[in-house]
Write a protein that binds this DNA or RNA. Structure first.
Lengths: 362, 362
DNA sequence: CTGAAAGCGCTTACAG
DNA sequence: CTGAAAGCGCTTACAG
């Protein structure tokens, strides 16, 4: 006896076979290829199984034997509960789950918290999956490196931008932000603030100077800041006040708005790199007695369902579709080909939180 | 050769061992018990593994050998993408994931769509998990029956109310709804409408008469209607107009509100059995030019994050906690004991969508 | 510190 | 339609 579990009590396919004087192969066929077995034998087997409480072939053993897990793992930057608090990543998850469900695959949620202190770099190494989706992890993420080693199909969503053999799916964040910048510029905004989620690995909340965002390990945020500035100022020089928050939450958006306006009261527009942050910023503006968009323009990113209800002007991206397409890319993964890159379109949804700046603040 | 995958190409623990003149046991120890192996051997093994692209012991084989999957499955009523569109179930999921992460377990999302047409009742039978959480599935759900057969720990959240050996976690829905009813009654409401998500298995959208909700396979909704009526009318007779929607969405709440008020224009309060429905109902009231709460009181259930932002009066339940506790109950599952039952508290959060009915509608 | 042996529960060609 | 045989890749006591 070399295995503790199943203290020679629980019935197995073999024990059922033996008790009936059949071969394990036949019992296996009853479950896997009923058409190859006579109905009388089939019935005897099922009855015996029922009698001893055998629920069918052990899933782990079957999976082991077959070499397939029929499961895809998704890895987030963060603790899972953080990812699930963000409606944007939840939409992505919903889209992914739809694609997988169509293909009869299960979805395994893998948190990419800090690596465990063992020899195993991360639970990514031990995850029983046939492929991975990585959602918005930083450059040089150790879990991603570990997954790459396993030579399973991988689709990276958003970031990092380039990853060995993995397929990539994301946005042209530079372009999207530049469009937004041009729109704000046309409205007359010159003093613009940015509220961004984390730029680096450290738990930093506060102003982020140019050096900080140029060195961000999250290229998405980096590209957006660059793009926004280009759209606002073109070839001119012009500075943007950037406020960083490690967490992506309503409360983070709220405190960031206060910090930004305290730092520079002349700001007439605040661009949030996520609708959840923007909803918090709107609340902050309310607290300060600022009318939106009269005194302050606030914009978001993503276009989550609540954005429309809040009247938020935002950069829309097809999050559900993104998840669905990530799933499809994974399912159609062409081994031995060059990695694929796919860009999804964005669009500016102008609603009621953006407008011309007040003349007195110009 | 009896296994197609791995066309005798991919390195295995054994092949590494052989190439180094070591035993598989030693190579295994390098990965699982490094302290039992000399550093020189360890280094040789790791170098050889790296050279041939061996990413460590195959997770499926290890899991098979160990007999544990370190994974918990969660089963929803619906397609996964529906569950993920509802912030209430997402909060639950977040709480569950937190509990599991603390215990180093993974979370597998199992959709409980229509059973597949095979001999296997559902993917629940084949899911590689050490336990299940069932979230709000109907009475006599086939997936739940299948899971029960597997004799793994199970925690049922909300419904069904009683399930063989499974633990149960939920609310006193009757009491919660009765509290709400008493509150509305005190305000002076007599004509009250209900917007509920599905009561039965069939895809029904429309009025639900008393027979329909008394026979609901979702006891939660049944109990809430009973409780609400008791709170409103006590021992008196009094009827409530119930509008059923198969889906739990903003749009469903919106169309249900219109249907309800078209059916009975004298209704002064609408109770929604979910905040998402209530947000839709608020939108419907807006479309009809009704002021809230002046012309119409609207209440929700759950207290999702957006509820507070929308000023929604609602019955709060601790959703994140519910998920976390479900996880803890699963982890502490006492085999051979009586199934446990645990009730979580609810509270009425009075905000700005409820008030006295207009005198002219009384 | 290292190795030989046993075996986890199942499925797959193949032969009869 | 049924069975004998092989083997998936690994880990665990145990002995040396």
């Amino acid at each position: 006896m070399t295995r503790q579990p199943n203290p020679s009590k629980a019935p197995t396919l073999t024990s059922i076979a033996r008790s009936l004087g059949l071969s394990p192969a036949t019992v296996s066929n009853v479950y896997n290829h009923p058409e190859r077995v006579s109905t009388s034998v089939s019935e005897r087997v099922l009855a015996a199984a029922d009698a001893v409480g055998y629920a069918g072939p052990d899933p782990v053993a079957r999976q082991f034997r077959r070499g397939k897990s029929e499961t895809i793992g998704i890895v987030f930057t963060d603790e899972m509960s953080f990812a699930l608090r963000d409606p944007a990543s939840v939409s992505l998850l919903a889209g992914l789950s739809t694609a997988l469900q169509d293909a009869q695959l299960n979805l395994l949620l893998l948190p990419a918290g800090s690596p465990v202190g063992n020899s195993r770099v991360s639970n990514v190494m031990g995850a029983v999956v046939d492929g991975f989706v990585f959602y918005s992890v930083p450059e040089d993420d150790p879990h991603l490196a570990a997954a790459l080693k396993r030579r399973l199909p991988i689709v990276v969503v958003d970031e990092p931008e380039v990853v060995g053999d993995a397929d990539w799916l994301g946005l042209d964040d530079h372009l999207a932000a530049a469009d937004l910048g041009r729109y704000l510029s046309r409205l007359g905004h010159r003093k613009v603030g940015v509220i961004t989620s984390r730029l680096g690995r450290s738990r930093h909340n506060g102003p982020a100077d140019e050096e900080m965002w140029k060195n961000a390990v999250y290229p998405v945020q980096r590209n957006r800041i660059h793009g926004l500035r280009e759209g606002l100022f073109g070839a001119e020089v012009g500075s943007i006040a950037v406020e960083e928050r490690f967490e992506n939450s309503v409360d983070a958006g709220l405190t960031a708005l206060h910090a930004l306006l305290q730092r520079d009261p002349d700001i007439t527009a605040v661009c949030c790199f996520g609708d959840v942050l923007a909803i918090g910023a709107l609340e902050g503006a309310r607290q300060r007695g600022l009318s939106v968009p009269g005194d302050l323009t606030v914009t978001g990113f993503d276009d989550v369902p609540e954005a429309a209800r809040a009247g938020l002007t935002t950069v829309r991206q097809p999050l559900f579709e993104k998840g669905r397409i990530a799933g499809e890319m994974l399912l159609s993964h062409p081994f031995s080909d060059r990695p694929r890159r796919r860009y999804l379109p964005t669009s500016l949804e102008v609603r009621s939180t953006s407008g011309r700046p007040n003349s007195n603040s110009m």
